[in-house]
Design a protein around this nucleic acid. Structure first.
Lengths: 124, 124
DNA sequence: ATAATTGTATTAATGTAATAATACAATTAT
DNA sequence: ATAATTGTATTATTACATTAATACAATTAT
């Protein structure tokens, strides 16, 4: 359940770190449909950040349909597996697409890209 | 020679757009060693942006060893082909690496990644 | 019923990136 | 020599993202 830490010194803003960490837990199924989220205040206390920052992140997650919150009772993760799986794939696909675009604009061919890919997959 | 435009409405800052556009021209060899850069003021006028913004970009390009500037005479692109080629490859490699990391953290396997890659390369 | 806990909303403070204004210095062209 | 053009440096302004402070409202637990 939500084992995450915030790097205060990092240049990437706290809310972004937090959201990404939660999203990762959701998409990798470490955190599942029906699970309760920690309350805004308790999570803020644990991470030593402002409650508003947590609230903001929860709100964006709600807008995207992953969680639902109610006054007095807290937030619950509601996204079904089918949804998170689809999202997860779409995310990777768009990343690959943008990589492809970048590679082509730099003058690489598709073949070049596949070769570099294979090499890194084997070595790393 | 440097055919670029600035999107004022974009969220990505002007200096970043400009730098990326110039870098693209350098790395794709549309702009070559020995070529003169447009003067700071003239480019600023064409793009309708502040000269300081152009100067800032030129300065960072100079720090990275791609161009050299002299008072009164202007900036010249000095990076040799071997250098730009190496840079270009390193850039792509690091992009692929970060993609790989992201994919793995999302629970994809290397095989998954290669498959998605192949599919997108064929379709797009 | 009452207290504690939960999320919500509003407003303010802060820090910093981005841009701009202006004056200075070297080179080049006339 | 002089004017025009080039880059440099300093400082100020602006805008915006980020974070924080505080008060409000609904639910839950006692």
């Amino acid at each position: 359940m939500l084992r995450l830490s915030i790097d205060e010194s990092s240049a990437v803003p706290v809310h972004q770190q937090l959201k990404q960490a939660i999203m990762l837990d959701i998409l990798s199924e470490r955190f599942q449909s029906g699970d309760r989220m920690p309350s805004i205040r308790s999570l803020a206390k644990i991470l030593k950040i402002n409650p508003n920052t947590v609230a903001k992140v929860y709100y964006t997650l709600e807008e995207e349909g992953f969680v639902e919150g109610k006054r007095g009772s807290g937030y619950i993760l509601t996204a079904k597996r089918s949804r998170t799986d689809k999202f997860r794939e779409g995310l990777l696909e768009s990343e690959v697409k943008s990589l492809l675009e970048k590679a082509l604009s730099l003058g690489f061919t598709k073949k070049d890209l596949l070769e570099i890919m294979r090499r890194l997959l084997e070595n790393g």
